[in-house]
Amino acid sequence: METTTEDGTRKRGFRLEPWPTAIVLFFTVVFVVNAIFVRLSLDSWTGVVTDKAYDKGLAYNQVLKAQQEQDAMGWRVTLDDGALKVGSEAPLLLTVLDRQGSPLVGANVEGTLVRPVQQGYDRDFVMKEIAPGRYKTGLMVPLSGVWELRVRVSGTGGEYRLARRIQVSASVQGG
Score class of each variant (00 low, 15 high):
Val168Lys: 02
Asp98Phe: 00
Thr9Leu: 15
Gly120Ile: 00
Pro91His: 05
Glu89Asn: 08
Tyr160Leu: 04
Asp51Ile: 12
Leu94Tyr: 11
Gln62Leu: 07
Trp75Val: 00
Val126Ile: 11
Val114Ile: 11
Val30Asp: 05
Val153Glu: 04
Arg152Gln: 15
Leu93Glu: 11
Trp147Phe: 05
Asp55His: 10
Phe14His: 06
Asp43Met: 14
Val24Gly: 08
Gly155Cys: 10
Thr50Arg: 15
Phe14Gln: 03
Leu104Asn: 02
Gly175Ile: 03
Ala72Trp: 07
Ser41Gln: 11
Ser41Ile: 03
Lys128Thr: 12
Arg123His: 09
Val117Cys: 14
Ser171Leu: 14
Leu97Asp: 12
Ser169Ala: 15
Gly174Gln: 12
Thr78Gly: 09
Leu25Asp: 05
Ala131Cys: 08
Leu16Glu: 07
Glu129Trp: 03
Leu162Ile: 08
Ala72Ile: 07
Phe37Tyr: 11
Tyr160Asp: 01
Pro20Trp: 01
Glu129Met: 04
Pro116Asn: 04
Tyr60Cys: 08
Glu6Ile: 06
Ile36Cys: 06
Arg39Lys: 10
Gly13Ile: 06
Asp98Tyr: 00
Leu40Asp: 09
Val77Tyr: 00
Gln173Thr: 11
Ile36Trp: 12
Val168Pro: 09
Ala90Glu: 14
Leu40Ala: 07
Arg161His: 09
Gln173Leu: 14
Gly101Cys: 02
Asp122Arg: 00
Leu42Trp: 11
Gly133Glu: 01
Gly145Ile: 00
Asp7Ile: 01
Ala22Tyr: 11
Ala35Val: 06
Asp124Ser: 12
Val151Arg: 08
Arg10Phe: 15
Ser144Val: 01
Thr46Leu: 10
Ile130Phe: 02
Asp98Pro: 03
Leu162Ala: 10
Ser169Trp: 10
Gly155Phe: 00
Pro103His: 04
Ala22Cys: 06
Arg15Lys: 08
Gln167Glu: 14
Lys136Trp: 13
Gly74Met: 01
Gln167Lys: 15
Met140Glu: 14
